[in-house]
Computed example of a mutant assay.
Amino acid sequence: MARIPYADPSLPEHRDAAEAIRASRKKIGHLHRMLLHAPPIAAGWITMFDAIRWNSTLSGKLREMVICRIAAINGASYEWAAHAPIALAEGMTQAQLDALPAWEGSALFDATDRAVLAYCDAMTRLVHVPDDVAAAVREIFPPRQLVELTATIAGYNCVSRVLEALHINGADPLPEA
């Protein structure tokens, strides 16, 4: 169970943020129900993650690969469960998903994937990215996509940390709204 109760989207102070979430996501899931306790954060969250997910020029496959890698590193099962099906729809194979927790020893990832995963690992585990790892992705991506990749990795590390700190679980019952 979550560490605090999920917010009620029908409360007057939550309505505007709840409508922003519904407009983007069609439903208000566990994470967003929790974020509604802080309506400005919930609304800003949707704006930021809509930009990362829908307005980026980064390929969907790479985006979802790093999201799943972050989930694997951080032990964020909710994040993994939400994004593994999207990763498959965006072009990752089931074998790649299965190998993602130990990608370094797998031959299933090409040179671009490996550079991106090394960058993701460094940002997630070390924060300070080594120069050689940064240089590898800088050689592959133009500045816009490098910023998009970096923001995606940073953003989804934030997601996993919120999920895990508050014990948000997709199996938790949500009260009627």
Results as ranks from 00 to 15, higher is better:
67 I>S: 05
12 P>G: 08
94 Q>K: 14
84 A>V: 08
20 A>L: 14
2 A>M: 07
89 A>P: 03
175 P>V: 08
111 A>G: 09
146 L>V: 01
128 H>V: 13
71 A>I: 01
157 N>V: 07
12 P>V: 07
90 E>T: 00
75 G>A: 07
25 R>C: 05
82 A>W: 02
141 F>S: 08
82 A>K: 03
1 M>F: 13
170 G>K: 01
101 P>Q: 02
104 E>V: 09
151 A>G: 05
46 I>R: 01
152 T>N: 12
154 A>W: 04
95 A>P: 04
59 S>L: 02
149 L>C: 09
153 I>E: 00
92 M>C: 08
54 W>K: 12
67 I>T: 00
119 Y>A: 04
172 D>C: 01
104 E>L: 09
85 P>A: 11
175 P>Y: 10
87 A>I: 02
83 H>G: 10
171 A>R: 13
19 E>P: 07
150 T>F: 12
44 G>V: 01
145 Q>A: 07
48 M>H: 14
52 I>T: 07
126 L>F: 01
149 L>N: 03
134 A>D: 15
80 W>C: 03
20 A>V: 13
151 A>F: 13
18 A>E: 06
74 N>D: 14
83 H>S: 12
139 E>V: 08
110 D>S: 00
29 G>C: 06
1 M>S: 11
72 A>Y: 05
168 I>W: 01
78 Y>R: 04
129 V>Q: 11
174 L>I: 08
167 H>P: 00
140 I>L: 11
51 A>C: 08
176 E>D: 15
75 G>I: 05
39 P>T: 05
28 I>D: 04
85 P>M: 06
110 D>E: 08
46 I>L: 08
93 T>Q: 09
7 A>P: 01
100 L>N: 07
68 C>D: 02
9 P>A: 05
1 M>I: 07
29 G>E: 14
75 G>Y: 10
38 A>G: 05
1 M>V: 10
121 D>S: 10
114 R>Y: 13
61 K>Y: 13
135 A>G: 11
71 A>W: 06
97 L>N: 05
122 A>D: 05
107 A>D: 15
43 A>E: 15
88 L>H: 10
6 Y>R: 02
103 W>D: 09
3 R>T: 13
43 A>N: 12
64 E>M: 01
160 S>Q: 08
34 M>H: 15
81 A>R: 05
109 F>W: 09
43 A>M: 10
55 N>T: 07
88 L>G: 10
33 R>T: 03
53 R>D: 14
106 S>I: 05
51 A>R: 14
10 S>L: 11
81 A>K: 11
145 Q>P: 01
128 H>C: 11
131 D>M: 00
136 A>M: 12
154 A>R: 02
92 M>P: 00
74 N>Y: 01
26 K>R: 15
30 H>E: 11
149 L>A: 09
151 A>Y: 02
84 A>G: 06
113 D>Q: 06
44 G>L: 07
154 A>K: 00
150 T>P: 04
9 P>C: 08
79 E>P: 03
66 V>Q: 10
12 P>M: 02
120 C>Y: 03
144 R>M: 12
59 S>R: 03
